[in-house]
Each structure stands twice: as C-alpha cells, then as structure tokens.
Amino acid sequence: MYTQAMDLAPKDERAALRSVEDAQLETRFEARIAQGDFIEAKDWMPEHYRKTLVRQISQHAHSEIVGMLPEGNWLTRAPTLKRKTIALAKVQDEAGHGLYLYAAAETLGTSRDQMFEALHSGRAKYSSIFNYPTLSWADMGVIGWLVDGAAIMNQVPLTRCSYAPYARAMVRICREESFHQRQGFESLLVMMKDGTAAQQAMVQESVNRWWWPSLMMFGPPDADSPNTAQSMRWGIKRLSNDELRQKFVDACVDQAGVLGVSLPDPELKWNEARGQHDFGAIDWAEFWRVVGGHGPCNTERLAARVAAWDDGAWVREAATVHAQKQALLEQAA
C-alpha cells in the first residue's frame, strides 16, 4: 500500500555533483532509467534516488505492519470460524508484506533496527488510513474492499518500479492482496444479500465512514505533491496521486452498485465529457490532521507497536543467546 510517504516529505533538492566521475555515472544512470532498465542493489545510483527509495519502501513496510492492528481488533470476535481463519490469514499476509518490504529497503543500506527506531520514535510515517478505528464487523469487509482496493490500485504500478528489489516484492504482494480485496467484498455481499436490515445498515454505516479516508490514501492532490515529478522521471512512481484516485473512484462506483450500498458523496456523478466520474472535495484538513499525529488512533497504534517490540525483547535475546551457545558447542565438538 501506501506511498503517501513520498508526498509528505519536504521537496528534496538534488545534491551537488562532486566530481566529473559522479556526473558521468549519473548520466549513465539516467540513460538506463530512460530505456526502462531495472536498477539492482549493487548498481551505482544517485544518493537522492537511494534516499527517496529508503523513505518510500520503509514507510510502505511500516504501513503493512501497523495495518495489522485495526484488523487485529476483530480476530477474536469474528462471527464464524470461517471468517476467523480468513482474517488470521489476511493479518499474517500483512506481516509477510511488511517483512518483504523491510528486506527490500535493507538492500539500500539501511538496517532493520534503524527502520524500527524511526517508526517507534514517531519520526517515520505510515499510511494515514490505519489511524482510524474498526468499530463494527462490517469494517473488516470494508477495509478489504476499499482500503485494500485502494492499495492494489497504488501497488500494481509499483511492480514496474525501476528499483528491482522493490518491484519484485511488489509482485509477490499484489498476488496476495487480491485475496484481501475479494474476501472483504464477499463478506459484505453476504450481509447485503442474506443479512438482516440491521446488518445491511451496519455495512452502509461502515462504507460511509471509510469512503473519504480511502480516497485520502492516494495522498495529496498532484499540485501539492512536490516530489512526484522526480519520482515519475525515475520510474519509482508510475501514475500520479490524482490519476490513481480517479481510477479508484471509477472502479468503486460499479462495485458499490453490485453490493447495493451508496457512496457518501452527493456530488459523485458520471461525467460524459470526461468519461470519468466527478466527485466532491476531499477534506484535506482532516488528512493533514491525521498525518500530523492527531487522528483518532495515532497514539494507540504507535503504543501497540512499541509494546509489541518491547515485549518481544526477551524472545529475540533468548534466540540470540541460544544461537551463540550452539555455535560454541559446535566449535568445541
């Protein structure tokens, strides 16, 4: 998911070139990107490209990890054993996605501990969407449909990212993400087709709460996304925030129709001339508030991550000591 990270950073200035050799390397690098080559970890790359990727990939990883928390809220309260096993598999996938991505970021020379430290200290960001609470069972379905749907929209172009380790991780993630979206939609469909009036109302209420935050997942409008142009030139980003958001809205309108729910936007309507839907203004003040740490669950989410890390310290330590002990025994034998 979740490439908001790039948009939240201040506009980066390119570092001054230090030598003729650097200039030649950069020209060669730009040429490789221009002809669609993939860049591997050990290849020469401009410092700015490396920095941009570390920021994007690590914050993408943080989003996957923090993204386990809203759904974790319903693991023990799923209505049936079937839904519980599905939810467990999905949350386990999110952990896996976080791990693929941390590993991809590490190929750029940052360490896992540095990334965790950045998350736990509150310096690093993760997607704003996970700072909203999961108040009803329907939220589990709506997260699958809208939040994972938005994530897929965002992530599919990243499978062609110029940085190969990231692109490879995204291929694996996209394959698994499709399950997330489909299981969510299907669980909503069951409630809308066979559910009671109260269950149907629960689904609609949930859609009403998640719709706008889902649109914010694509990040600020293109005009306010200072690093987009450079990232697109470098093939780190393939489509702009507004292009992706529009694709998402267009896809969701039909899906909402199949589901039998309405989307909470009176201005949402088909624009024949554009061949796309028009939609209402997004409350960017809310977006910046949540990103700035003042969403409904920011404090709770971060506290849960820090507690998980601290509570796991003795396990990490024990495994390390065990490994050292085994190595010594082997040496002695």
Binding site: A103, H322, A323
Partner: peptide, 11 residues
C-alpha cells in the same frame, strides 16, 4: 526469493 533475519539456521 528473498531474505530475512534469524538468530540461527534452524530459525
């Protein structure tokens, strides 16, 4: 297919 951190080979 990728990499991971672990204390030892078995883990």
């Amino acid at each position: 297919c990728g990499s991971l951190h672990a204390a030892d080979a078995a883990l």
